[in-house]
Amino acid sequence: MDAFALVPPEWTKSAVHAFDFCCPSCKTSPKEAKNVWLNRRAPVSMGDRRKYQEFYLCECQTSWWGWSDDRPTSELGTK
């Protein structure tokens, strides 16, 4: 699965919006997702920035999405 593919994978069709940026069913972090797809074809402009939908398929088989600017800051960026 290519996270940057132009065509969305089938599992994204049933995705629900997760407001806490984790799986809404089991609360697992997106780092543990089995698959990821980024919707780069429909960005939302926010002034001088853009945000994208990030889709995740959890290990519990729940598909969910969140906005790229809602994703918590990476631990790698703080070192």
Rank of each mutant, 00 (worst) to 15 (best):
M1K: 12
M1C: 01
D2R: 10
D2T: 07
D2N: 15
A3Q: 08
A3N: 09
F4S: 11
L6N: 13
L6P: 00
V7W: 00
P8M: 07
P8I: 04
P8G: 14
P8V: 10
P9M: 07
P9S: 10
P9N: 09
E10G: 10
W11R: 05
T12Q: 06
T12H: 14
K13L: 05
K13F: 01
S14Q: 15
A15C: 11
A15I: 12
A15L: 13
A15F: 13
V16N: 08
H17D: 07
H17Y: 15
A18R: 06
D20C: 06
D20V: 02
F21Q: 07
C22K: 15
C22Q: 15
C22M: 07
C22I: 01
C23N: 11
C23K: 06
P24M: 11
S25G: 12
S25T: 13
C26Y: 11
C26E: 08
C26N: 01
C26M: 05
K27Q: 15
K27V: 00
K27H: 15
K27G: 04
K27A: 13
T28A: 15
S29M: 03
S29H: 14
P30I: 02
P30F: 11
K31Y: 13
K31N: 15
K31S: 14
K31R: 11
K31D: 14
E32C: 04
E32K: 12
A33N: 10
K34N: 06
K34P: 05
N35G: 03
N35Q: 15
V36N: 05
W37P: 08
W37I: 01
L38P: 00
N39T: 02
N39C: 08
R40K: 14
R41S: 14
R41A: 14
A42S: 14
A42L: 04
P43G: 09
P43A: 04
P43S: 00
P43Q: 01
V44L: 10
V44Q: 06
V44K: 10
S45H: 13
M46G: 00
M46T: 09
G47S: 00
D48K: 13
D48R: 12
R49W: 01
R50Y: 08
R50W: 10
R50F: 12
R50N: 09
K51E: 04
Y52R: 00
Y52V: 02
E54N: 13
E54Y: 07
E54L: 09
E54C: 07
E54D: 02
Y56Q: 00
L57K: 06
L57M: 01
L57V: 03
C58V: 05
C58Y: 08
C58H: 02
E59A: 02
E59G: 00
C60Q: 02
C60F: 08
C60N: 07
Q61H: 12
T62H: 05
S63P: 02
S63V: 04
W64I: 01
W65T: 02
W65Y: 15
W67L: 12
W67S: 10
W67R: 10
W67Q: 01
S68E: 04
D69P: 03
D69I: 14
D69H: 13
D70W: 06
D70Q: 15
R71C: 02
R71T: 08
R71V: 09
R71L: 08
P72Q: 09
P72W: 12
P72I: 09
T73K: 11
T73N: 08
S74Q: 05
S74W: 01
S74L: 11
E75M: 10
E75T: 11
E75G: 14
L76W: 15
G77D: 04
T78A: 05
T78R: 12
T78S: 13
T78L: 15
T78M: 05
T78F: 07
